[in-house]
Design a protein around this nucleic acid. Structure first.
Lengths: 168, 168
DNA sequence: CTTGGAATGTCAACAAAGCTGACGTATTGT
DNA sequence: ACAATACGTCAGCTTTGTTGACATTCCAAG
C-alpha cells in the first residue's frame, strides 16, 4: 500500500514511511518486554520489583551518589524512590551514609549482598543482550545505539552521556 | 580497563564487552522513556494510561480482534485488560460486537472517536520515531530493528512477525 | 548572630495497573 | 448430556507511581 503512494520520495527515504515507523514502535514494545523479562523473574523470587533493579543498577554505576541525583536519573518522585530505597537498606543491600560536606545528603553504596544481587541481575540481562548483539553483528549494534540515543529526551541523553564518560 | 584484558579476542568482538553491553542496557532504559513520553502526556490529559494506549494500538492494528487474542499479544491477565477495555467501551472509543461464527467471542473495533485518539497518540509517537530515524539514517535503522528482534522472547517475536506479515 | 528560606530526605495516604482466585453465563463441540 | 472454551465480573493483594505535610540542615540577608 505504501509503495507507489509517494513517488516523489527517493529510495533513500522509504525507511521513513508510517508503516516502517509503526514496525519500529512495535519492535520497541516487544523488545522491551524481553529486555526486562530475565531480571523480572529473579526479582520476583526475592520479593523485589523493577524499581529495585533500577535503583541497584544506578547505585552500582555511581557509588556514593545522593538520593537527589538518583532521583533525577530515574525520573520519579523522591517519595517513590524512598520506599524502594528503604526496603533495600532494611534488607542490607544498600548502605546510606550521612554526607560529610553537606549533612542533608545521604550517600548510597551497595553492600556485599547488594553487589551480589546486582551481579546476578546484570548477568542475566547481559546474557540476553549479548546473544542479541552476537546475532545481529557489530554494524547492527552501532545502528541500534544510534537510534536509541536519538530517541532519548534531552535530559535522559544528558544522564546517559555523563555515565558513558565515566569509563571512557 | 577492558582494553588489553582480553588480547585473544579479535577486533571484531570488542562490541561484546561487558562495558558495551552495559551501555546498551542503559540506552534501552533511557530510550524507552523517551519512546513513551509523548503519548503519556496526551493520555494523562484525558485520564487514561499506558495500558489504554496499548489496547487502542493493537485494536487499531488488528480490527475485529478478539479479547483472547489481544490478551496473548499484550501478555496481561484478562482482569487487567478487562478493566481498561471496559472504560474504553463506556467512553465510546471501542466497540465490542458479538462474534458471528462463534458467539462467545467479542470482536473489538475502534469507533470514530477511538480512531481519532489512536491517530493523535501514534502521530506523537511517530514524530519522535521519525526524528530519530532521520537523524540516524537507514543503515542504523536496519541495525536497530535487527537487534530489537533478536532481543524479543520467542512468543513476542511470533506476534511481531505475524503483524509484520499483514502489510507486507 | 539570628532568622527565614531553600534544599534534602522521610512519613502518610491515595491512584493506576498489574496479579491470583473464584464464579457465572453463554456457546461450542464431543 | 456434558466438558471445554470465551468472556465478564467480584474481591483482594502488590508494585510503583503520585501529592501533601513535615523534620533537618544549610546558607545568606539583615
Amino acid at each position: 500500500m505504501a509503495e507507489g503512494l509517494q513517488p516523489q520520495m527517493g529510495q533513500s527515504l522509504l525507511f521513513l514511511t508510517d508503516e516502517q515507523l509503526r514496525k519500529g514502535i512495535e519492535a520497541m514494545f516487544f523488545a522491551y518486554r524481553g529486555f526486562t523479562a530475565d531480571p523480572d523473574r529473579i526479582l520476583a523470587q526475592k520479593g523485589y520489583g523493577r524499581a529495585h533493579h533500577r535503583a541497584i543498577h544506578f547505585i552500582h554505576r555511581s557509588p556514593g551518589t545522593t538520593v537527589n541525583n538518583l532521583l533525577s536519573i530515574l525520573g520519579v518522585t523522591k517519595q517513590s524512590l524512598n520506599r524502594v530505597l528503604r526496603t533495600l537498606i532494611e534488607d542490607g543491600l544498600v548502605a546510606s551514609t550521612v554526607g560529610t560536606r553537606d549533612k542533608r545528603e545521604r550517600h548510597l553504596h551497595l553492600t556485599a549482598a547488594g553487589a551480589a544481587l546486582e551481579r546476578e541481575l546484570s548477568d542475566a540481562q547481559r546474557d540476553r543482550m549479548r546473544a542479541a548483539y552476537r546475532a545481529a553483528g557489530p554494524a547492527a549494534v552501532a545502528g541500534f545505539r544510534q537510534v536509541l540515543e536519538a530517541m532519548m529526551d534531552e535530559e535522559s541523553r544528558h544522564h546517559y552521556e555523563a555515565m558513558k564518560d565515566k569509563t571512557e
